[in-house]
Design a protein around this nucleic acid. Structure first.
Lengths: 177, 177
DNA sequence: AAAATATGTCAGCCTTGTTGACATATATCG
DNA sequence: CGATATATGTCAACAAGGCTGACATATTTT
């Protein structure tokens, strides 16, 4: 019997459990929590023919209006070609506009339109409500604990991306107006 | 100029902020935390030519050995055809084996092999370490708060899926042996 | 003027989701 | 027993959203 050998693989009947030294509880909670967390906007997006990729672009353009294509690529960690597809759709549908960079006119600064802002808010609202409900259940005084934990889950070298968002401790104040 | 009208969309220059009544902080923290949380196993999976879909299948087969294809589909919420592709690969590579159901021989009970168990553990380990490090930073006594929050983020009707996993409060004890 | 940079775009590939249709083995119903 | 229902497998086609490589264009820098 060449190629199959005699070691037919033996099925393991015991469940992987916490006894294996793995924090399965939180691993699974993160999986389920995130799945449902993203399900809210997914439905709204589908109505416009958009997907999660559009959501991410729209969110960060709303959070950092005027950021360039290169800066957006850095936040999203995707390629120019991947971005191009969804960005084009968001521009064609009037959710985002591009303006030539005032200093470097090769750059394209990205801004949300009123429609883009409205959609971003519509997408964020159910997520915010879900968070609020969960926080209420947990105890609102525990907010700092939750934030601390989530931030500690992020790669240290990428935490700067969070801190540089507007309205954060240690914000640079990108609007000089 | 038909089709373009005169209302060229006006760029919004102010950043979406917490003043808009949205919990942007936790929304973004969840995004970044989950992104990095999943990046750990992604690298290991790539070495075997697997993706995140394989991870999910492997995880739940390890957590609920002997579950049927239909049960797995219910947990993953994907179609039979989507599952078939990745499941076939996991079987062909000796990570998972199928046994005909003892009562209903149309069913296929899914079990991990030693190799499948090892890979599941290898994938879970860095995630567990990341959680542990974050928990250490936050304070291990806050563990219940974190778990409570994450569970509260899950759709109420889907929390049963969590509670039915082995080693959970209110476990049914699926092994009757 | 030449080289580097920022962006856009074309073409093609991969993974992982989808639907629809159909085959097979087994169980159940009448 | 025969018909029907069920559990699973599989084929074909399609879509979203990642990827790479190559090349065009505008603009800035050298």
């Amino acid at each position: 019997m060449p190629g199959k050998d005699e070691h037919e693989p033996v099925p393991i009947r015991t469940a992987l459990s916490r006894a294996d030294g793995i924090d399965l509880d939180i691993i699974e909670l993160l999986f389920f929590a995130y799945r449902d967390f993203t399900s809210d906007p997914d439905q709204i997006l589908a109505a416009d023919g958009f997907g999660r990729a559009h959501h991410r672009v729209l969110h960060f353009v709303n959070r950092m209006p005027g950021l360039t294509v290169a800066e957006l690529l850095d936040v999203l960690k995707i390629t120019k070609q991947s971005l191009a597809r969804v960005l084009k759709q968001l521009i064609d549908t009037g959710h985002i506009v591009q303006l030539p960079g005032p200093k470097d006119r090769r750059q394209r600064e990205l801004y949300p339109t009123q429609r883009g802002r409205a959609l971003a808010l519509a997408l964020a609202r159910p997520q915010s409500r879900r968070i609020d409900a969960a926080l209420k259940e947990t105890g609102r005084d525990k907010r700092d604990v939750i934030e601390g934990f989530l931030k500690a889950m992020v790669n240290p070298d990428l935490r700067a991306q969070i801190d540089n968002l507007p309205g954060r401790p240690g914000t640079l104040g990108s609007d000089d107006g």
